[in-house]
Amino acid sequence: MKKNTVLLLLLIIGLFRANAQEKASFDKAFQKANNGKSRIEIPPLKELLHIMLAITKTGLNNDDMVNQSGTYYQDVLKHFKPYANEPIIKTFDSLLNVSLYNYIFISGNAMSYDFSGAKLKRNPNYIFPARGVANMVIETNPLDTYRKDIEAFANKSRFSNFYSQHKPYYTQIIEDYKSGADLEKQWKWLEKNFKTSINSYLILCSPLINGLNYTTEFKDNGFRQIVMVLPMLDHDPKLSVIQNELFNTRVMFSEIDHNYVSAPSDANKTAIDSVFKKRATWVNEKADGIYAYPNPIKVFNEYMTFGAFLIYCQDNYNKAIYAETRSNVISLMTARGFMKMELFISCLEQARMAAPDNKIDDLYPKLLELLDK
């Protein structure tokens, strides 16, 4: 059974980005260890919380929220479902019934603690990492509230044994990310082609993540880190190796480049408002989820997010692969309600061809001029 599908769709395309109220502390030691580096992790505490959420009544009945396919999910059920009636699981289920945002507030705040033996110890760098989603803000970290209950559940369910037994599988997922989507390659291209600079990237993954994935940013002491919570890479047997690579790259890239397109969009807001003021020209109001793009700059940014991905593909793949990817993105965007994607990318290609050495930020005025014709 699937619930709140539109909400999940919006989260998967990265619209509900965490509010700028999250708290982090990046001291000199943290900055030295992480500057210019990316990491992909499946942390024990976060995996435990995903498991606990998966065996709630809500999680068991929502295959958008929880990836219920594959051997790993069956292993989770076999090991942990006997503990589904524990009070903390029922508490988590009651929170999910209030709002599915509590999925993020529970699992997203896993960063604020680390396992130290059987106990949870405060993380010195991530103080309150998931405080706000969309218009919902919480004042108390749920892990502060339920820390003892989570410790007790981990001990009773023998979580550490389960995690250790599946460590080779977690390592395989991480290695698959490195080879199948190549975050470093995308990051390097974005830093070269935009004026924005990000210090560090962290991908937090779980075999149980499905539709509820998102991106947030932490800033402290002049240091910027992007954290992405993502599912495993997809490997569709009907697609070629390169087609799977492009699909997985697009999922990641369209999360990452939100952090690069927004600054030049803000700088050109007046022109964007003018060009995109006729909303019916740019979006199909009947498309599911289009209401989440209520103003010109949000509409433009979604076009630009996928436009930048196509320019990345143009730079990194041959003409035939680019043409196929271009067509697929236009079809995808049209289905989502952005029916002018072909016009948008044609104008972006034209603007870049006229000034190939310019940063994409500097192409905005010409792009908007072409779109306004």
Rank of each mutant, 00 (worst) to 15 (best):
I321Y: 10
V241D: 15
I150C: 05
Y291A: 11
A355I: 07
N102K: 05
H79W: 06
C347T: 14
M232G: 06
R279F: 00
E324A: 15
N102I: 06
I290L: 02
T281W: 10
Q243D: 15
P124L: 09
W282V: 06
F300V: 05
D361S: 01
Q186T: 12
Y83P: 07
V6S: 14
L368K: 02
A118T: 13
I55H: 07
T325Q: 13
K119D: 08
N4C: 01
T334A: 14
I330V: 14
S327Q: 12
F159G: 00
D182R: 09
K81A: 15
T71A: 14
T215A: 15
N141P: 06
R224A: 09
L120N: 03
A84T: 12
M111G: 14
E47V: 02
Y146P: 01
P43F: 01
N358I: 08
F16Q: 10
A29Q: 14
A18M: 11
L15P: 08
E285F: 12
E255Q: 14
I150M: 07
I272Y: 06
Y103M: 06
Y303I: 05
D114R: 09
T91A: 09
D27H: 09
V137P: 07
F128C: 00
A20F: 13
A181D: 02
A154K: 04
Q31I: 04
G117W: 05
R352M: 07
S331Q: 12
F30W: 12
N193P: 11
L367Q: 06
L239Y: 12
L10M: 15
L363Q: 04
P264N: 02
S99I: 07
V98W: 05
